[in-house]
């Protein structure tokens, strides 16, 4: 019995030492990790809301959690929104930053994270030689965010060959994210109307 206590204590001391060491490392790396995330979000926002002055993008928060972003013009009128859309693809959850104008049209989008099948689903981010933006996502621009579908489902978006699931997931996630955005905006007391095409 005494033996077990002694062994248990030894193990505990070692674990506490390890945890303390890691806590030190974590406190050093955390600011960097946070900064990386912040930078990624900002970069995505500049793609989702093209030609926007980063200063005039506001995050609408609920506590710590960002519900959506809004872009205001000089008269503090909201001219565009951005939101994070999530959809289950083939092998991962695809997260996308999507920008829409007040009439609900997509003005820009950027995939934040996905681990789809290399060579197939990952083509949602593929940039063809000599181009500057991903061809698949470009198809979404100027289309109503509440009404998107791939060709196989009767829409206009050309799927990636061999990756219909990823393509469809992206389209559906934008619709879902947009519907959520409308609800969020409507629930705000400011009550900025958004002409909705997704009802």
């Amino acid at each position: 019995m005494k033996d077990i206590v002694k062994l248990g204590l030894t193990l505990m001391v070692i674990t506490v030492l390890a945890a303390a060491g890691l806590a030190a490392v974590y406190s050093v790396t955390k600011p960097r990790i946070d900064a990386q995330r912040q930078m990624e979000t900002e970069r995505a926002l500049t793609v989702a809301l093209p030609q926007a002055d980063p200063e005039s993008i506001q995050a609408v928060k609920d506590g710590e959690e960002v519900r959506y972003y809004q872009l205001v013009d000089d008269d503090s009128q909201v001219v565009a929104y951005a939101f994070v859309a999530r959809g289950t693809g083939y092998s991962s959850v695809i997260e996308t930053m999507v920008g829409v104008d007040t009439s609900g049209r997509v003005i820009g989008m950027k995939v934040l994270s996905q681990t789809e099948t290399p060579g197939l689903g990952t083509k949602v981010e593929e940039i063809r030689y000599g181009e500057t933006d991903p061809w698949f996502q470009r198809q979404f621009i100027d289309k109503p965010a509440g009404d998107l579908a791939v060709k196989a489902d009767g829409g206009e978006i050309v799927s990636i060959t061999g990756a219909t699931i990823s393509s469809r997931a992206l389209a559906n996630s934008v619709i879902g994210g947009y519907k959520k955005l409308i609800k969020e905006i409507q629930s705000d007391s400011s009550g900025l109307a958004l002409k909705s095409e997704a009802q």
């Binding site: 674990t15 390890a18 945890a19 890691l22 806590a23």
Partner: peptide, 10 residues
């Protein structure tokens, strides 16, 4: 959360 791996394996 940084203790996740170590806690889970134990």
């Amino acid at each position: 959360t940084f203790l996740r791996t170590i806690a889970f394996i134990l």
